[in-house]
Design a protein around this nucleic acid. Structure first.
Lengths: 217, 217
DNA sequence: GTCTAACGTTACCGATCGGTAACAGGTTAC
DNA sequence: GTAACCTGTTACCGATCGGTAACGTTAGAC
């Protein structure tokens, strides 16, 4: 997103390393508020100055924790990806061994999240869909570092959905998996335009069920 | 996207108005290159200076044609919307009276456009999906003017697809229309991440067919 | 010929962008 | 104590952002 800067080699050998449990709080506060602001307003719309002051610190302390804004963005993306897989695994877990119910649970949770449930602490009113996908709109095409993060992430979603389709015995697992992915991604995308569940999101459960039955018959 | 500026009331009463056929070319050039740059790199990533010089003119001439960047963005969005409906109607036309084939034609054209066919003149290598949808990521939430353009547009897509579903005699037209919309929007969204047709886009035709058959029986 | 509208050019404005230098206070480990 | 580290603060850098003032040139309309 900007000019490269030589990283100041923060991990000097003289690092004491014992105080690793209760790490400094500034860096965490910055990352947390950055996640909120980036998600809600977009990456390019939020400057490092705004992030720092919103986190209760200043720009200088910001650059002591992050070599550049791009590094913060990279951490934002991987952070959001981690949250996503955590959500995924938690939704999947209760139906281990039943891939079809797992897929249904995922889709039901998607519409639930669209309706109202947002992150616990943050006062985020409306969901804005996929953080990684939205970031892809703003990431310049020559920034392979950030682009690869999103690409790997979306590829993993695709892989998991195809695997789920294969496990439930679909006739064409790749097609069914990709179709489910399109429904989910479409729901993320349209959430930018239609607040809450006023959009086509609510059609997902029936659509997904119809697709599964067609592929299982 | 920026501070509001009083419009200089360009349409003075003394406008001669005869030379309306061969309108000035500067404004058109600016709008055309703006469409390309906005679509390819995002709205926030492209400054008016870059647009003007890429269009073979300069910033001052730009502000003689557009009161502000926001006005240019608004025109960009409505322009892209117009292109979309033009494409839509052209794809629909050959199958008038056969709503199901119309829907199939739309979906086939969607994957065709993802594969290779891009705009005629512009050397745009890869499609980046929906211009209006992508813009929604970058539009600040308090900008009702731009937000409404996208909202109306997406609402019209939804209305047309639901209408198509109703015309083909679907049991639940709203559900089928919304499901088709999710597939299409999902294909637009994932096109940001997967170049060409390497993504789940190619699963659309089979998925759409399965959904239609399920809703028609 | 002259008037006018469209366009190019240069220079500038305040604001903000990402990023840095230098200094001061406070905590903690040893 | 003291040394190392974390943090806050102020001021600054060059670049770019959206937007404007003022002046010149060109070409067509009458």
């Amino acid at each position: 997103m900007s000019a490269k800067v030589a990283s100041p080699d923060a991990a000097k050998l003289s690092r004491p390393e014992p105080a690793i449990a209760d790490r400094p709080r500034v860096r965490d506060r910055i990352l947390e508020t950055a996640c909120e602001l980036f998600y809600r307003h977009g990456i390019r719309a939020v400057g490092v100055d705004a992030i720092a002051s919103e986190a209760g610190t200043n720009k200088m302390s910001f650059y002591r924790s992050f070599p550049s804004k791009d590094d913060l963005v990279a951490e934002y993306l991987t952070d959001q990806e981690g949250e996503y897989w955590k959500w995924w695994d938690e939704v999947i877990a209760p139906y281990a061994g039943d891939p079809r119910r797992q897929a249904e649970a995922l889709i039901e949770s998607v519409v639930d999240l669209a309706r109202h449930k947002m992150k616990e602490a943050s006062g985020c009113k409306t969901s804005r869909g996929c953080a990684l996908g939205n970031a892809c709109v703003e990431i310049p095409e020559d920034n392979q570092r950030l682009g690869d993060i999103v690409h790997k992430y979306k590829n993993e979603i695709r892989r998991r959905l195809r695997k789920l389709a294969r496990e439930m015995g679909a006739r064409e697992p790749e097609v069914l998996g990709d179709a489910l992915m399109l429904l989910i991604e479409g729901s993320y995308y349209t959430r930018l335009t239609f607040p809450g569940n006023t959009g086509p999101v609510s059609a997902i459960p029936k659509a997904a069920r119809a697709l599964m039955e067609a592929h299982l018959g």
